[in-house]
């Protein structure tokens, strides 16, 4: 059986004009991205802001048009479909948005919000059946059915995001794209939403594309992880405990602030900022911040190469397998003598 989603050499550029008369500059948001999403898996996409992960999420559902490339959903080429045909496929692919404050219509009650997808699809339910459906959905996402009449402003952030999830489930989709669904929530509420998503995935046999900037969260939640940097996928980890081979993935792991004072990091693992997406370099996009970069990295863009069992890395000098991750950076540290070790 083929993968549920197959993305091949996907590109998306934006033309940005500083003023009405200025020459348009090309912003490369997504650059030659290819990957598959298998049925029933949770694929995580991590990256920092501006790396193109949200653009990618929208492209997968064709909420925005790709500049080039192919998106196949269950064997159907989405990029060629007319709007009418695309709408027929919509029930099978849904999305949960990042900000539950702006993604719900303030003038719709929870019930209106949940029934809207049905009416768009031309499914009309009798009033009793509709009410039944709503209360069933609300209980699926852990909300009291009394909230059906509530407006978004009457709900907390966590409750709103549960409504957002319920809305994505109304049409019984196969694929749900989750674009940072917990980024605007408190940590305790984030854990509630993540556990809810976990149980829904198991119960309804969903496939998730989970977008996040939090590698620890993605590692906890996902089966496979794709790491993005400046619009390109630099590494795909076949399992969360795979030792990363790309220097950026390693740095991302080491930048995570571990809630354990016995595991303090003496230095920040990575210097510098992400480059501008207006001027993507010819070579490796990460070369300017990479400690292992050589002349080759500056001139030739590394391609995603297969290492073992689905482990793909785009790096000319991948991290050697023997190197255990945190130690290397202790040695590389330069000035920070003032850090005292734990204890």
């Amino acid at each position: 059986m083929t993968a549920l989603v197959e993305i091949r050499r996907l590109d998306r550029h934006f033309e940005v004009r500083r003023s009405l008369f200025a020459r348009a500059k090309i912003l490369t948001a997504v650059n030659q991205v290819s990957f598959d999403i298998e049925r029933g898996e949770i694929l995580g996409v991590v990256g920092e802001s501006g790396c193109g992960k949200s653009t990618l999420a929208r492209l997968v559902l064709r909420l925005i048009e790709p500049t080039a490339g192919s998106i196949r959903f269950d064997g159907i080429e989405l990029t060629q479909l007319s709007d009418r045909h695309l709408r027929r496929l919509r029930p099978r692919m849904q999305m949960v948005f990042q900000d539950p404050y702006s993604s719900l219509d303030p003038r719709y009650t929870v019930e209106d919000t949940l029934l809207e997808p049905l009416s768009i699809q031309g499914i009309s339910l009798a009033r009793a059946a509709a009410r039944e459906k709503v209360s069933e959905l609300l209980s699926t996402v852990g909300l009291a059915s009394a909230l059906a009449r509530a407006y978004p402003h009457q709900l907390s952030g966590g409750q709103r995001q549960r409504v957002g999830i319920a809305r994505a489930l109304v049409l019984s989709p196969d694929l749900v794209v989750l674009d940072e669904p917990t980024a605007s929530l408190d940590v305790s509420v984030q854990a509630q939403i993540v556990t809810l998503l976990e149980s829904l995935q198991a119960k309804l046999n969903l496939t998730y594309l989970f977008i996040s900037h939090d590698l620890a969260l993605v590692s906890y939640f996902c089966d496979r992880i794709a790491v993005m940097y400046l619009g390109s996928i630099v590494e795909i980890l076949p399992a969360v405990r795979t030792q990363p081979k790309h220097h950026y993935t390693l740095a991302l792991m080491e930048s995570a602030l571990i809630p354990d004072p016995r595991r303090r990091r003496p230095t920040a693992p990575l210097a510098g900022d992400v480059l501008s997406p207006f001027a993507i370099p010819a070579g490796c996009a990460f070369a300017s911040r990479c400690a292992a970069a050589t002349h080759l990295c500056g001139v030739e863009r590394p391609l995603l190469k297969r290492y073992d069992q689905g482990h793909l890395v785009a790096c000319h000098h991948p991290v050697a397998a023997c190197k255990s991750s945190p130690q290397s950076h202790f040695q590389r540290s330069t000035t920070d003598d003032v850090y005292r070790p734990y204890g």
Partner: peptide, 10 residues
């Protein structure tokens, strides 16, 4: 961002 956060905190 995560990598910048680590820099600024240090």
């Amino acid at each position: 961002d995560v990598t910048v956060q680590a820099q600024v905190l240090h």
